[in-house]
Amino acid sequence: MTYAIEANELAKRFKGGVVALDGVSFAVEPGTVFGLLGPNGAGKTTVVRILTTILAADTGWAKVLGHDVGREPDLVRRLFGLAGQYAAVDENLTGRENLVMVGRLNHLTRREAAVRAAELLEEFELVEAADRTLKTYSGGMRRRIDLAAALVTRPGVLFLDEPTTGLDPQSRAGLWAVIESLVGSGTTVLLTTQYLEEADRLASRVAVVDHGRVISQGTPAELKAALGATVLAVGLHDAATAEQAERALAPLSDKSPHLSGTSVELPVDGGPKVAMEALRVLDQLGIEPVTFVLREPSLDDVFLALTGRSAEAGSDPQGRDLVTEPRAASGGEARR
């Protein structure tokens, strides 16, 4: 089996001893979408930067389409496309000029670059905006032109670093559709995301990354099965009642409930049925919930289940700070 992307025990430590990656391994089958899921600062972007030859790993190795990224960087750069959270396109150029520039820098001839740019503008529904500078583009349009730029050479492997972070739901859905159609035509995609929903929708396999390590790996279904299909979230009047409710609700699921302030969250398998039981139990105790919601599990829930702490929180119970992404650490506002 030749994998499209392989990472083996990748480790990276930044200046000042900050450990960004602490032995990350995974393999991506050709023609599939692989999701790296994790909170800000988990090390997802560092993985992408190593795989795209921007950054060298301290130890470990990685291959793209069978070629080692450290040993054959020039060759590897011709095999993939990269698009990301920070639409790295030139806002003083028009959409068309950006695409032609990327084509030329990929050593297409002038003619080839122009033809390809026109095709992509058509595909991404940017024909009308093609000859306006990117300054006039909306956030969603910028991501689209950025993604189009990554596809100029029709690469076999596509890296998408948080492709929809900060986008409105409509733009997000639009990008998802594009990514799905790319995969349909045989492209291998590695995407990083903070959204479980996104990984669930697009990825056939997911690795959950935390503190520079893969803490869980599998299909989205396996991840969710480990967690429970839905989460029952109950809000109470005060913390004391919440503790009481936590004790009362715990027997309803084989997963343990999570208490935070005045709310209790319980991963459950049989959603509505458990909800009815929960209301009955609370009623018997004379507890009246303020809010009562059955919802899809979020990344936060996966994190709680896997690590016992929230993905949103800045540090874990031992008080270690989350590793910050390198650019953010050195470049200040650079990529925020």
């Binding site: 499209a4 050709p30 492997v157 045989g186």
Partner: peptide
């Protein structure tokens, strides 16, 4: 399985 043909087209 080998690398997809799309890789180099």
């Amino acid at each position: 399985m080998s690398a997809p043909a799309t890789a180099v087209r």
